[in-house]
Simulated assay, not measured.
Amino acid sequence: MNEIFKSMIEERFYQNIFESLQNEIMDKYDQYDLALRANVVNEVLEASLDNIELLRILDIKQDAEEISFDILVSCDIEIGDYAYRETILESVCQWFKLSCSAILQNAELKNFSVDGIEAYNK
Score class of each variant (00 low, 15 high):
Ala38Leu: 10
Glu90Val: 13
Val44Met: 06
Ile79Asp: 05
Asp59Asn: 10
Ile88Glu: 02
Glu118Ala: 12
Gly80Ala: 12
Glu53Ile: 14
Asn23Ala: 08
Ala38Pro: 11
Phe112Asp: 07
Arg37Cys: 10
Leu55Glu: 14
Val44Asp: 10
Thr87Trp: 14
Cys75Asp: 12
Ser48Cys: 14
Phe5Tyr: 06
Asn23Trp: 12
Arg12Gln: 02
Cys75Thr: 14
Glu24Val: 06
Ile4Asn: 02
Ile67Phe: 01
Lys61Ala: 00
Tyr32Met: 08
Val73Arg: 02
Met26Thr: 14
Glu10Asn: 15
Asp27Gly: 08
Asp76Trp: 05
Met8Ala: 09
Ser74Ala: 12
Lys97His: 12
Ile103Ser: 02
Asp59Trp: 01
Ile57His: 04
Met26Phe: 10
Tyr29Ile: 07
Gly116Gln: 13
Ile17Ser: 00
Ile25Asp: 00
Glu10His: 09
Gln22Lys: 15
Gly116Ser: 08
Met26Arg: 12
Ile52Tyr: 14
Glu108Lys: 10
Asp27Ala: 15
Ala64His: 08
Val92His: 05
Ser7Met: 07
Arg12Thr: 00
Lys6Asp: 00
Gly80Asp: 08
Asp50Pro: 09
Cys93Ala: 10
Asp50Ala: 08
Cys75Gln: 09
Ala83Ser: 09
Ser48Asp: 13
Thr87Pro: 01
Ile67Arg: 01
Leu89Tyr: 03
Ile17Leu: 00
Ile67Leu: 03
Cys93Tyr: 10
Ala102Ser: 06
Val73Ala: 05
Asp27Trp: 13
Tyr32Ser: 07
Ser20Thr: 08
Leu21Trp: 06
Ser68Val: 06
Cys93Gln: 15
Gln22Trp: 10
Tyr14Ser: 10
Phe13Ser: 00
Asp63Arg: 10
Ile71Arg: 03
Glu118Tyr: 15
Phe112Gly: 02
Lys6Leu: 01
Ile17Arg: 01
Tyr82Thr: 14
Ile25Pro: 03
Glu90Leu: 04
Glu3Pro: 03
Ser101Ala: 04
Tyr84Gly: 09
Ser20Asn: 14
Ile17Pro: 00
Leu55Lys: 11
Glu10Thr: 06
Val44Asn: 15
Ile79Met: 15
Gln105Cys: 14
Asp30His: 11
Ala119Met: 06
Tyr120Pro: 02
Tyr120Leu: 05
Arg12Tyr: 01
Glu53Ala: 06
Ala38Glu: 09
Ile88Phe: 02
Gln62Cys: 07
Ala119Tyr: 02
Asn39Cys: 11
Glu78Ala: 07
Cys75Ala: 11
Leu89Arg: 08
Tyr82Ile: 15
Ser20Cys: 13
Glu78Asp: 13
Leu49His: 04
Ala35Lys: 12
Ile4Glu: 01
Leu49Ala: 04
Phe69Asp: 05
Phe18Ile: 04
Lys97Phe: 00
Leu109Asn: 00
Ala83Phe: 07
Leu34Phe: 09
Arg12Asp: 00
Ile60Asn: 09
Leu58Tyr: 02
Tyr14Ala: 03
Gln62Ala: 03
Ile67Trp: 00
Cys75Val: 06
Tyr84Trp: 11
Lys28Met: 07
Ser7Trp: 05
Ile60Trp: 06
Asp50Arg: 11
